[in-house]
Design a protein around this nucleic acid. Structure first.
Lengths: 201, 201, 201, 201
DNA sequence: AATGAATGAGAATTCATTCAT
DNA sequence: AATGAATGAATTCTCATTCAT
């Protein structure tokens, strides 16, 4: 008896994953205007199945976005121990920016759907906060290594990070342009006397 | 004889202005999901009056956004002749970034509504291109004055500008944070040896 | 003082005529879906002027249609005295059928607008009844002349007339086809032994 | 296992049928001006259900009209093998004419809604073409049997058919009148010497 | 647990008709 | 008398969410 139950759970788990993948694709491309039915179609399940797993569209978006932040968080943790803390920071910065298209569409979809209600996006908010914290660690390390100006704090670093992410997502920049813009930011962050390796970006 | 005609036009003109103001407010806050009826309500006119003045929602958004770019353009032209070209550029940069919240919501609403169809947003596109050009002029002047690195070109400057605008709009930054982030960007842009006046922002 | 009044009346009269012509054109082409504003535009007057002359769309359509029936009535009266009563009837029949496109669009527009309410189209109904009567006279004459079967009465003749009119209007027949179809009807109407002149149609 | 799937489908199928019936009634009476909401109300379903089954009003009308032509086509095929080809043709003609009220309102509604765009009414067009072809067969048989004049071809026969249909639909003729008018047409079609059985109509 | 059909609350847009000048 | 701006009711269609199987 427990075996069939397990089998079903496995089914359900795989459906859940398929739905999340489909939602990431669909909302990442079409933003808030994409419909939940499109997600179901792409996932190959019925619409009711989507709603069984995620009772509201906002919940679905929240989960998708959280997953995406979590993936980034893993990368951040992976580079956290790097012996070149400056490169670690700049590489992470670049990685987040590069990942931005799609993620931002998701974030805006979520925003549109929740109407900005506080806490409506709790999973994503938590994951995003964790990522922020991890970036904070990278920042501190880079500062301790003398690579980044000491008067920089996380809020302004994050403002720059968000900005460059949005810029990339919105303007469909040639990568050369994006690299140059990031170069300016990194130069601005660098401690006096620190020489960034120009291929960093 | 011309008076009655004028009188009507004055009425219509004032309604048109009220509608534009209302639309700027409503869509600036609520983005694409805000409804044209909300605009009508806030403007204190009937829904059909909105559609008489702006036959499509896209047209209304286009006009509102164009107006906003035009206001910025005026500022750009005002500082163009400044005898301190570096300050002129950085002040303009700051002004555009500060103006961003609302404008960005408008831009995204327009995008959502047009579905990205080319030319569907012609007024706004034209005005935006003019602003970009004007910023290009400020950049060249600042470079000629030796204040900004010579290897910077307009596309990357604009990428930074858009990014910081988005950042400001999205993160509802405290102005202190925003100023610090801008400081980093400006430092990254500055020619070696150029000393920005720290109160620039 | 009376002169200016007269002048105005002349103005008004010419406006009225222009509106009627425009309405005939616009509704004759576009049916009920055409808008009263289109009429005003084509007539070169303001929309309020149209409504001053014809307080409802139904009233306007009624008048236009009545005018059209009246024109036909004049033709019917013109041929009434013909010394070849059979030709007179068949020619009148053909004339009405040929005039049908446009008239039918008007009739249907009127119908759609009134929702079939009785008496809502009184002018047109009266004029149409007069035309019917005039055709009745032509029928009787043709029967007295031995050209048309004696057992035919006005209602069935009119059914045929309406049918062929609708057919012409709807099917955009080549005139050769229409002529052949009319030929069948005329043959069916002809008294035994009567030889229609084949160019009748 | 298949039962639940079937059950749903049965539900949906019955709704679909109810919607089609309601649409036939509503548009057959009210023409294009009738609203899809009226259809929903009469069918006893929500408005969205109508749109789920027929994503556009034009599609709904197309299907309703096609169904109606198909019913007629069945009759045409039923009489095609009759051993009295003349009666077969005249009976079919009469049947089509008698069926006209309602059908014509549907056709005009469809026309209004599609704006005459080609192919927008494909199902109905196809079914109508099939019916025409079937009538063509009946005509040929009747001519071969010597009952109908040899110089008649399908286009003019169809012009007459359409005309008498419209006439019936528009004028709400007493059946006696309609019969007499049809009698005229049939006499006009009959080959010289052929004696129609007077009860044909 | 999964399905797909059903639902009603909007949203943009149009139009006949009325008002103010 | 003429104008054109304003109005609100109506219409088609979409979507998140719920129900029945």
């Amino acid at each position: 008896m427990s075996t069939p139950a397990r089998a079903q759970r496995a089914d359900a788990r795989s459906n859940r994953a398929r739905i999340l993948d489909a939602a990431e694709e669909v909302f990442g491309r079409g933003g808030a205007s994409a419909s939940t039915e499109d997600v179901a179609r792409l996932a190959g399940v019925g619409i009711a199945t989507v709603f069984r797993h995620f009772p509201t569209k906002a919940g679905l978006l929240d989960t998708v976005l959280a997953r995406r932040f979590e993936r980034m968080l893993e990368r951040a943790e992976a580079v956290a121990g790097s012996e070149d803390p400056a490169s670690a920071l700049f590489e992470m910065f670049t990685a987040i920016v590069t990942d931005a298209p799609g993620k931002i569409a998701l974030a805006e979809a979520l925003d549109e759907v929740t109407g900005g209600a506080d806490g409506a996006a709790s999973q994503a908010e938590r994951a995003s906060a964790q990522l922020r914290q991890a970036v904070g660690v990278l920042l501190r390390r880079a500062q301790e290594a003398g690579a980044v100006r000491a008067d920089i704090e996380l809020p302004e670093l994050y403002a720059l990070l968000i900005g460059m992410s949005r810029s990339t997502a919105v303007a469909r920049l040639e990568s050369g342009i994006q690299a140059k813009a990031l170069g300016v930011v990194f130069d601005g962050l660098a401690a006096p006397g620190y020489r960034r390796r120009s291929n960093t970006m």
